[in-house]
Design a protein around this nucleic acid. Structure first.
Length: 487
RNA sequence: GGCCCGUUCGUCUAGCGGCCUAGGACACCGCCCUCUCAAGGCGGAGGCACGGGUUCGAACCCCGUACGGGCUACCA
């Protein structure tokens, strides 16, 4: 046994990393780092039908993207390997032998059909509907004979008759008591010899010297069962901590119908890993009244006693707000490096262009970073700067260019732009004169110019946009714009 | 049905017997700023599930009820 903290995250590679799983990983990671312990990654791939290597890699990728690191795992190795359950069969077999020899497990020959029937009957009668322990009283010699004769059987754990209440000192929920009278002699090893999840996970946590099991509270009711196995194995029972689950807005467990649920989906929608991490950390844990904090603060301040017991509803709106906060806090350099991949992807520019025009891009960056909530909005906001054939939005044309005076305004703007110094301040000074001169509202002049230059009624600030676009392009666009009304 | 857990503004939460006329954040509404959109500033509306106790005093402790959730598989 070790006295240092060892925690694990054990995903099933049957799909991508779910945001609920990600939060569990984050809490375990933060707990380990806070205590200077070890964070172990184990792949619970006993479901051979649905587990894939692609999923495993995708999960590792998502965890790394979030900025989590682990001390032991399938790729990192470690003294407690292997880290795939499918490679640990020998350990489960060994553990079963232990339980056979100390008589804490027994073979059960009941067929699924009889069990179903009994369960139905018990439930109809009300009360406990667990296994009735028929096979527990079979004489060991008879049982062995039946096994030797090839009779199909499973192995069940024997819950001691005198065990009494199983009392859990949960690190998140406090004391939870389970009467052992409601405890089932559940299956450890299936007819085909494979371990059930309940058995494999206990053997692994035991063999890996896991000290704290931090997981969703959907496992709370399973915990006394697992405690019984730890005890039967003669293992030290780890400390448990059960957190509330993440729900959708309808109060149901988060699933596909609530929209995006995988970490990588959020990455692809333009969310920053630090923002997702922050939001997830805050969903069911609180520092005090601080909402925005960095990774180091999370590690420094994380404690299980401040993890919430109640379920939390996933709130995409707050995630977006938080992503915006992180986006706005970035320097132009940082922000530019984040958006470049999106610009490449959209075909707006090449890596060579980006290098050549870096100074120009750095001028653009702060104009955009203040206006978006996620990276995927960048392309739509800046594409007008990268096209040779601007298409003016029809609604903008109707709403602005059809206004009385729009044509005169554009002519005046063009005249002024022809020889103004190309800095935002100079352009602004020059254009500010026009409304008075033409007796038009400033808003009309500026909006008409905006539509002509950017193609939309919504854009980054006008004067900066004109400067970034350049005199020639701006003048060409204004000249090409046909107002709908007579001047 | 049985066992277990949970319940503070719409949402995430602070609160751990007097500091609470219940604080913060998102969202919402209004005003300000303003070349659009944002961002920002100021202000507003909005909550202790219900009923009993215990106590001088309860959002906080106890007991019920209601509602929600989990488990009750040879799923994980």
């Amino acid at each position: 046994m070790t006295d240092t903290v060892r925690v694990r995250f054990a995903p099933s590679p049957t799909g991508h990393l779910h945001i609920g799983g990600a939060r569990t990983a984050i809490y375990n990671w933060a707990f380990a780092r806070h205590h200077g312990g070890s964070f172990v990654l184990r792949i619970d791939d006993t479901d051979k039908e649905r587990s894939t290597e692609e999923n495993t890699q995708a999960i590792l990728r998502a965890l790394r993207w979030l900025g989590l690191d682990w001390d032991e795992g399938p790729d990192a190795g470690g003294a407690y390997g292997p880290y795939h359950q499918t490679q640990r069969g020998g350990l489960y077999a060994e553990a079963l032998e232990t339980l056979k020899s100390n008589r804490r497990a027994y073979p059960c020959f009941c067929t699924p059909e009889t069990l179903d029937a009994k369960r139905e009957a018990a439930r109809a009668a009300g009360g406990f509907s667990g296994y009735d322990r028929t096979c527990r009283s079979i004489d060991p010699a008879d049982a062995n004979a039946r096994i030797d004769a090839g009779e199909p059987h499973v192995w069940r754990v024997k819950v001691p008759a005198d065990r009494g209440d199983i009392v859990l000192d949960d690190a998140i929920r406090g004391t939870v008591t389970f009467p052992s009278s409601a405890m089932d002699d559940f299956v450890l090893v299936r007819t085909d010899g494979s371990p059930t999840y309940m058995f494999a996970t206990v053997v692994d946590d035991w063999k890996m010297d896991i000290t704290h099991i931090i997981r969703g509270d959907d496992h709370l009711s399973n915990t006394p069962r697992q405690v019984v196995v730890f005890e039967a194995l003669g293992a030290t029972v780890p400390t448990f901590g059960h957190m509330g689950l993440i729900f959708g807005a309808d109060g149901k467990r988060l699933s596909k119908r609530h929209g995006a649920t995988s970490v990588e989906a959020y990455r692809d929608m333009g969310f920053l890993p630090e923002a997702l991490l922050n939001y997830l950390a805050l969903l069911g844990w609180s520092l005090d009244e601080t909402n925005v904090f960095d990774r180091a603060t999370l590690v420094e301040r994380f404690e299980l006693s401040r993890v919430s017991k109640n379920p939390a509803v996933w709130n995409p709106g707050k995630l977006e707000w938080m992503n915006g906060v992180y986006l706005r806090e970035m320097t132009a350099e940082e922000f530019l490096d984040r958006i470049l991949p999106w610009l490449y992807e959209a075909g707006l520019l090449t890596a060579a262009d980006a290098t050549a025009r870096r100074a120009w891009l750095l001028e653009l960056a702060p104009l955009v970073s203040e206006r978006i909530k996620s990276l995927d909005e960048v392309v739509g906001m800046v594409s007008f700067l990268f096209t040779d054939e601007l298409v003016i939005e029809e609604s903008a044309r109707e709403k602005v260019l059809a206004k009385e005076g729009a044509g005169r305004a554009l002519e005046a703007v063009a005249a002024v732009l022809a020889d103004v110094e190309m800095t935002p301040a100079a352009v602004e000074d020059a254009l500010r004169d026009i409304p008075d001169r033409l007796e038009l509202k400033p808003k009309l002049v500026f909006q008409a110019t905006r539509v002509a230059v950017t193609g939309s009624t919504v854009s980054p600030p006008l004067f900066e946009s004109i400067v970034l676009l350049g005199r020639d392009a701006a003048l060409a666009r204004i000249a090409a714009t046909q107002p709908l009304a007579t001047p």
